[in-house]
Design a protein around this nucleic acid. Structure first.
Length: 356
RNA sequence: AGGGGUAUAGCCAAGCGGUAAGGCAUCAGACUUUGACUCUGACACUCGUAGGUUCAAAUCCUGCUACCCCUG
């Protein structure tokens, strides 16, 4: 009997994953990760989650353990997260969390425990052909999480199982309900992985100094004050506090950050200034290999966005240039561009430059 | 201290005697394993202020106050 170490979060997805794996004949071991030390009042959600892991594991009659990677998380994910914000970019920590934690120390720990495979409750699939490993989109397109896994290497994908590849989310809920799992109705978790949902501003404020500055419109006219550039991202409209003008109605959007002068540049009503035609991305990861020097495929520039048609060119330094068939709104440096060919996720990279 | 204009929620802004449109912001939900976007809902017993006319005023009249503009 093969051993599978399953990352169990306390949520319904990984719980049902455990049952599915067990039904497939695996010897399932649940492993809960504790990766963030709550220093503030964000009261013990991790403990709550672990309590759910216990109850689910008992119900399914599988052993469970807990492991703490808070140090690794801080060093490999959180530091990057803060660095990006310092540069005025908008990072996606959860992509890194997968590459650096779940498929890093967690994977190694599982192997040390004697795992033949690791598994997670991600909505995505994996397939293997001629020694190559492919990352596939989930059957439930609306929940597909390949975007967050675009940085996984061949080694990281070699021995992983994704039990939810072919199951709709609604089905997962039904199974949990039928099994009588305590988290059958538990709300999906959101917010930064392991850190959770919290007031973004007050959270960041604990780690980064913020400097108030001027908000100016596209013509350079001062229209307000911002509370620190790091709190804003391109295309954002909430939190600006800017009201109506005599010129007409419309919403204000963040168009650009001027780090040098600590100015936030906004546009009123006209969103066309947020549209771009192409981008440059680095830190490319290919799954399994770069298809060719230039090709056409689809891409996402952020999670939960419909795929867009693009032309990709691989540059000599390994970066890629991506041209959009249709202009895209608010493509943002720091976010990942993830490429797809049908159901296959081809990999992705970090957006460095965006061109109008 | 000559003349003219404007004063409606945090910001724009309808209303022109019959019992306060709309937009933005804000807040709350929904959506969401980033940050956003998006969607839904809430949001002026009151119209600068004090009086007056009227069955009835934000709407008409008068005084006051504030701001703006023009001429001195």
């Amino acid at each position: 009997m093969k051993n599978v170490v399953l990352g169990m979060s306390g949520g319904v997805d990984s719980a049902v994953s455990a049952w599915l794996l067990k039904r497939q004949g695996f010897n399932v071991i649940a492993l809960f990760m504790h990766n963030w030390e709550e220093s503030d009042d964000g009261c013990c959600t991790a403990e709550q989650d672990f309590a759910d892991v216990k109850r689910v594991s008992d119900k399914l009659d599988i052993p469970y353990y807990s492991v703490n990677f808070a140090k690794e998380y801080k060093e490999r994910v959180f530091s990057y997260f803060l660095d990006e914000y310092k540069k005025g970019r908008t990072p996606n920590p959860d992509v890194l969390c997968n590459r650096e934690i779940k498929f890093g120390p967690f994977l190694q720990y599982a192997k040390a425990l004697g795992a033949d495979y690791i598994a997670t409750g991600h909505y995505c699939g994996v397939s293997h052909l001629n020694g190559k490993h492919y990352l596939l989109k989930a059957k439930d397109q609306s929940k597909d999480q390949t975007y967050f896994l675009n940085q996984l290497s061949q080694n990281q994908l070699a021995d992983v199982l994704f039990p939810l590849a072919d199951i709709e989310k609604s089905e997962v809920r039904k199974i949990a309900d039928k099994l009588g799992l305590v988290n059958a109705e538990k709300k999906d978790s959101t917010g930064i992985c392991f850190i959770g949902e919290r007031n973004f501003r007050s959270f960041l404020q604990n780690y980064l100094p913020n400097q108030r500055g001027e908000i100016v419109d596209v013509n350079g006219k001062s229209v307000g004050e911002h509370i620190g550039l790091m709190y804003y991202t391109l295309g954002q409209r909430r939190g600006l506090g800017l009201g109506g003008t005599a010129e007409g109605q419309g919403r204000w959007f963040v168009v650009e950050k001027d780090l040098e002068n600590n100015k936030l540049i906004v546009s009123h009503g006209d969103e066309s200034v947020l549209l771009s035609n192409s981008l440059l991305a680095s830190s490319m990861n290919w799954i399994p290999d770069c298809p060719s020097e230039s090709f056409t495929c689809t891409a996402k520039f952020r999670y939960r966005q419909p795929e867009q048609k693009v032309d990709v060119k691989v540059l000599t330094d390994g970066r890629i240039s991506v041209n959009f068939h249709e202009k895209q709104r608010a493509v943002t440096p720091g976010q990942f561009v993830v490429l797809y060919d049908g159901v296959k996720c081809l990999g992705g990279g970090i957006i460095d430059e965006v061109y109008k």
